[in-house]
Design a protein around this nucleic acid. Structure first.
Lengths: 153, 153
DNA sequence: AGAAAGTAGTTTCATTTGAAACTTTAATCT
DNA sequence: AGATTAAAGTTTCAAATGAAACTACTTTCT
């Protein structure tokens, strides 16, 4: 009896494993910051991005954060209301606004960053530097391949 | 200026990369079966599991499918209504039921399995067997570590 | 210039999700 | 046995999500 007849072995099926792992990791990490800072995942990504690339607009944030414009709009609204983030309407195009962390946002980021780093470090604690490099390469290749397979229905 | 002050580099942050990858892969794969068979992810997992382990109860499905009982209840209801799955109340305990694929469910599984396999194969097309083994090991270790870190808030 | 088409971001609405409460049956305690 | 506690699934309710419609502004076309 082959796989097609018996069904496939779920616990070894790559998409299942990736979903399960990413879910655990996200919930874990969220447990570290969402309670303490009241941040959602999209909000955290936006803050992290603006930390290294201040002044991005909502549209520019979408690709590097892998977020759609609805999520961004909502996240930005909450972050603005909680005074983590400031919007500056662009002179050249009044539809969009450059986004900047406020001092409070900066402070929050510098508190969360080490927590996030520490969590990542713990995940990779028993990986050698060579293995980390290897993993990095694997993830890049899988990402590129998944991207390439997008259209092929 | 260190990472904590500048923020961390999102595109290289492991949790972000895992979420992004798993999201792409899931959407991709769902595109291959959800349209054709009207299956959600929980439904697909349950069908796949029952293919190799017929007669499981809802409770027994939860851990190996990484699903909560609410998702299972809803998925089972839909699968039963669409005649993919049959519930047999347990003699010994009338609260729960053993679940079995119907002939129609079996047929569906044997149609989807090769599609899922093919997608996984394509993802891993340019991985050597050694690399696949390596990746397998990495995922196991990350999974175990993430599991272990669950409590440590 | 004025009309038509396009873009940035927001809002609406319908669906998905999950935690908590609930129902039914089973096991344990007195 | 009768009462209490626990377990399997289901239902309810509120929050999260995302596609589609919408608003405000900008660019392109004639």
């Amino acid at each position: 009896m082959n796989d097609a007849q018996r069904g496939l072995h779920l616990p070894r099926f790559l998409p299942y494993r990736l979903t399960k792992l990413s879910g655990m990791v996200s919930r874990n990490l969220a447990g570290h910051y969402s309670a303490a800072f009241d941040l959602t995942v999209p909000e955290w990504r936006i803050v992290a991005l603006l930390g290294s690339r201040p002044g991005l607009t909502a549209r520019e944030i979408a690709p590097p954060a892998s977020l759609d414009k609805v999520s961004i709009s909502r996240a930005v609204e909450r972050l603005t209301k909680s005074d983590r983030l400031e919007k500056r309407i662009l002179e050249g195009d009044r539809r969009s606004a450059a986004l900047y962390l406020t001092d409070s946002g900066q402070r929050m980021l510098s508190e969360i960053t080490p927590i996030a780093q520490r969590y990542e470090d713990q995940l990779l604690k028993n990986f050698t530097p060579e293995e980390i490099e290897q993993l990095d390469d694997f993830l890049n290749r899988l990402d590129a391949k998944a991207e390439a397979l997008k259209g092929s229905l």
